[in-house]
Amino acid sequence: MKKMPVFFAGHGSPMIALERNELTRTFNEIGKKVMDAFGRPRAILSLSAHWYTRGSHVESSPSPRQIYDMYGFPKELYEVKYEPKGFRPLTERVLSLLPFADVNDDWGIDHGSWTVLTHMFPDASIPVVQLSIDGKISPKASYEIGKALSPLREEGYLIFGSGNIVHNLYKVEWENKGGSPAADRFDAYITDAVSRRDDEKVIHYEDHDDAAYAAPTADHFLPLLYTLGASEGEAPFVFNRVRNLGSISMTGYAFGLSLSKGGN
């Protein structure tokens, strides 16, 4: 069995679930490339910024509910259905790799997961299990959790992190189709470090002068550290390298997978 890739995707506005543009076409291309090059994953372990908890929790439900954890959007967004099955063997394997984790089925498949996966794997036929992002541990500890999860890749499981390199809803510039100078600087700094696999620099992202602007809370940044740990030493394919609304970065990284076009 081939070693499955690892992804980190910038998910941005939930409206991306309805959009058909270069960003979503790249998501779709990634999904097709996975199926062509690796075959169907047994299941996807999703690390969404929107399940941000105290402690590490993993789902076990055979039919996790789809969560519309966003407000004030058009009716059409709440009609999007993405309802994959759960996969208990993956849940059990995560618990064996993370003995400090526990089962929690109070959550489900939130928009950090389904707005991207609906483009990557549109038919929802691949089971999805979410693992929460632990908000009480250090960035280094988040990276170490990713390392602990890396054996899953040898077992047919795809690891998928969803968040944003830059995510500051307080500084959104509604008329800006690109990024602010601070967003551009921070995104370039992190992408350069990820590309060179200077993981320590990414782990210590708060040392950057623009970190307080780019990541005023850690929830959307930490999924990147989980995916870096799970892909230690592997060079990324950088995709969707754009900023929008001033303070949102859509930049993503694929580890263990190369694409012929799109994204940069």
Rank of each mutant, 00 (worst) to 15 (best):
K201C: 01
K201L: 12
S132R: 04
I126V: 15
D69S: 05
A49S: 14
F160E: 03
G229K: 10
L98K: 00
Y253V: 02
N21D: 14
L95Y: 06
A49P: 11
G252D: 01
V103A: 00
G72S: 08
D110Y: 11
R185N: 13
A254M: 09
Y157N: 09
N21A: 06
I67S: 02
A49T: 04
R65F: 03
A101L: 07
A188T: 12
G86N: 06
G86C: 02
R197N: 09
Y213L: 01
L90E: 01
K177P: 09
Q66M: 12
V80M: 05
D134R: 08
S195Y: 08
T118K: 14
N264K: 12
L224N: 00
I248G: 02
E154R: 14
I109Y: 04
P62K: 02
A183W: 03
D123S: 13
K140D: 13
N264H: 13
Q130H: 14
P223A: 10
Y226F: 12
F237G: 01
A235T: 09
S125K: 15
K140M: 14
N176S: 10
G252S: 05
R40E: 14
A214F: 09
A235P: 09
E29M: 15
H57R: 03
F8C: 04
R20V: 07
L77D: 00
I165A: 03
E155Q: 12
K81V: 15
N240G: 07
P236E: 07
E79T: 06
T217A: 14
Y82C: 06
R88Q: 08
E29H: 13
G146P: 03
V242P: 00
V129P: 00
G108I: 11
I30H: 04
W114S: 09
A188P: 01
T115H: 06
A43I: 09
S113F: 13
I145L: 10
L149T: 09
V172Q: 05
L47I: 12
T251C: 04
G55H: 07
F239L: 01
A230M: 08
V242Q: 03
G252T: 05
V129L: 03
H57E: 10
P64E: 08
K75S: 11
S247Y: 02
R185F: 08
Y226H: 06
V116H: 04
V166W: 00
R20H: 13
G178L: 07
Y157P: 02
E22I: 01
F38D: 01
A17G: 00
D210V: 00
G108H: 09
K261V: 11
N28E: 14
